[in-house]
C-alpha cells in the first residue's frame, strides 16, 4: 500500500516537473519567434554570431565529452590545454610565419594549415601525456582522487601558460577580412566566420567517421559502454584511453586556433571557456558527441541573443543565464538533451 502510494507520488511529481520544464521551453520558443518577427534581419545576424561561437564551444565540449564517456572523468585541464594551444598558435602565426593583415590569401591558408600541423600533434601528445602521468596511476583509486588531480592539472597547465606568455592578451592581425562572404538582403556572413566553419565542419566529419567506422573508434565506443567487457573482447583499454586523449588534445588545438581567429586569448581564457564547454557537454548529454555540439550551439545562441537583441538582460547576465540553463537541465532532464537514462544514472 505504502509502496504503491510512493510510486504514484513519484509519477505525479515527475510529470509535474516535466510539465514545468516543457512550459519554460515553450515560453522560450514563443519569445524567439516573437523576436524573429520583430526584426528578422537582426535576429539572423545575431544568430550567425551565436552559431560561430557555438562551433568554437562545440570543439572544446567534444574534448570533455569524449574523455568523460571513456573514463567518467571531468578533465578540468582540458580548457587550459585549449588556451595554451591558442597561445602557441599566436606565436607561430605572428613570430614564425609572420602573417600580416595584408598577407596573400594563399599564404594565409598555408600558414593556418602549418600552424595546425604543429599544434595538433603537439597538444595531442601533451594531452595524452597528462593522462599517462596524472590520471592513469589513479585508474583504480576512488573517482574523487582523479577529479581533484584534474583540477590540479588545470592549475599546472594554466600556470605554464602564465609563465610563458604573462598576463597580457595575445591576438593575431585580421588577415582574414571582415568583409561579407555571403549576403542575403541585410543578412551577412563575414569571411572570418566562414573560415571558422571551413575548419570546424571537416574536423567534425573526420571525428564522426573515426568514431563510427574505424576499428579504433569502435573500440572507443565499446570501452565507453563497458570497459571490462571491452577488455574481455581483446580491446587494449590503456591504448584506447590514450587514443581518446590524443583526439581530445587535437580538438583542443583546433579550437585554440579557431578561437584566436575570432577573439583575444590569454592564460586564463580556458577557465571560463572550459566551464561553458563543459556546460554544453552536460546540456547535450555528457558522453554523447552529437549532444556536445548541439548543447554548444544552444549556449552560443543563447549568449548571442542575450547580448545582441533588445529587451534582454544583456551581457552582464550571460554567465548567470548560461549556468541557470545548466541548473534547469539538471533539474528537468538530468541525462541531457540526447543522453540516455542508464542504469548507473550517469
Amino acid at each position: 500500500m505504502t509502496t504503491a502510494a510512493a510510486t504514484l507520488q513519484r509519477i505525479r511529481s515527475s510529470s509535474l516537473i516535466d510539465a514545468i520544464g516543457l512550459l519554460i521551453l515553450a515560453a522560450f520558443v514563443v519569445w524567439l519567434i516573437y523576436k524573429f518577427g520583430e526584426n528578422p534581419t537582426r535576429f539572423l545576424n545575431v544568430g550567425i554570431i551565436g552559431a560561430t561561437n557555438g562551433a568554437i564551444y562545440g570543439l572544446v565540449a567534444l574534448g570533455y565529452t569524449l574523455v568523460y564517456g571513456i573514463l567518467q572523468l571531468i578533465n578540468f585541464a582540458h580548457g587550459d590545454v585549449f588556451a595554451l594551444s591558442g597561445l602557441v598558435a599566436s606565436t607561430l602565426i605572428i613570430s614564425v610565419w609572420g602573417l600580416e593583415a595584408d598577407t596573400n590569401v594563399i599564404l594565409v591558408v598555408l600558414g593556418l594549415l602549418a600552424t595546425l600541423a604543429i599544434t595538433v600533434p603537439l597538444f595531442a601528445t601533451i594531452n595524452a601525456t597528462i593522462e599517462r602521468v596524472a590520471y592513469k596511476p589513479l585508474r583504480r583509486a576512488p573517482r574523487l582522487a582523479a577529479l581533484i588531480t584534474a583540477v590540479g592539472m588545470s592549475f599546472i597547465v594554466q600556470n605554464v601558460s602564465l609563465a610563458l606568455y604573462g598576463v597580457d592578451f595575445e591576438s593575431v592581425p585580421n588577415f582574414i577580412p571582415r568583409t561579407s562572404a555571403i549576403e542575403i538582403g541585410d543578412v551577412a556572413i563575414q569571411w572570418n566566420k566562414v573560415a571558422i566553419f571551413l575548419i570546424v565542419i571537416p574536423v567534425l566529419l573526420v571525428l564522426t567517421w573515426f568514431v563510427r567506422t574505424t576499428r579504433q573508434g569502435k573500440g572507443m565506443r565499446a570501452v565507453a559502454q563497458d570497459t571490462e567487457a571491452a577488455a574481455m573482447m581483446g580491446i587494449d583499454v590503456n591504448r584506447t584511453i590514450s587514443v581518446t586523449f590524443v583526439l581530445a588534445g587535437s580538438l583542443a588545438a583546433v579550437a585554440g586556433l579557431v578561437y584566436l581567429l575570432q577573439f583575444n586569448i590569454r592564460y586564463d581564457t580556458g577557465f571560463e571557456l572550459g566551464l561553458i564547454a563543459f556546460t554544453a557537454a552536460v546540456l547535450g548529454g555528457i558522453g554523447n558527441l552529437t549532444g556536445a555540439v548541439l548543447g554548444a550551439m544552444m549556449i552560443g545562441m543563447v549568449q548571442a541573443f542575450n547580448e545582441g537583441l533588445d529587451g534582454t538582460p544583456g551581457s552582464d547576465w550571460t554567465r548567470s543565464i548560461v549556468f541557470g540553463i545548466l541548473i534547469a537541465v539538471l533539474v528537468f532532464r538530468p541525462q541531457g538533451i540526447l543522453g540516455e537514462r542508464t542504469p548507473e544514472g550517469a
Binding site: K218, R221, A222, Q225, D226, E228, A229, A230, M232, E340
Partner: peptide, 12 residues
C-alpha cells in the same frame, strides 16, 4: 569469453 550477465555493448 562470454561473461557473466552477458555484458553486451548495449548501444551497439
Amino acid at each position: 569469453q562470454s561473461p557473466e550477465g552477458r555484458r553486451l555493448f548495449p548501444r551497439m
